[in-house]
């Protein structure tokens, strides 16, 4: 039996096996899209699954544009869906 970790996606708790990628955890939770495109506002999730296509970008612990297929899950991780990065004013 593998270790389980808990993380949240848009505030909802999902569980994953330790060592899985964020993309795999979302897939196992039945979540297939977590980003909308800039031009057409279309849903996107995993496509290439190996870090090449950047379709699966997700906000991880407040850091936008992380590739869900490359980032391993961690207990307590916060995932957020979204689109473009917001640049803070006068940061």
């Amino acid at each position: 039996m593998t270790d389980q970790v808990n993380l949240t996606f848009d505030g909802v708790t999902i569980t994953a096996a330790a060592g899985q990628s964020v993309g795999a955890a979302l897939t196992d939770a039945g979540i297939r899209s977590w980003r909308s495109t800039r031009r057409g506002d279309r849903p996107r999730g995993l496509f290439c699954g190996i870090g090449v296509c950047f379709d699966c970008l997700v906000t991880v612990d407040g850091r936008p544009n992380q590739r869900a297929c490359l980032v391993p899950v961690r207990d307590g991780m916060r995932l957020e869906s979204g689109g473009l990065r917001e640049v803070s004013a006068r940061g």
């Binding site: 850091r63 544009n65 990065r85 640049v87 803070s88 004013a89 006068r90 940061g91």
Partner: peptide, 8 residues
């Protein structure tokens, strides 16, 4: 534009 620091 210091706030562009994390922008790719």
């Amino acid at each position: 534009y210091p706030s562009l620091a994390p922008v790719s």
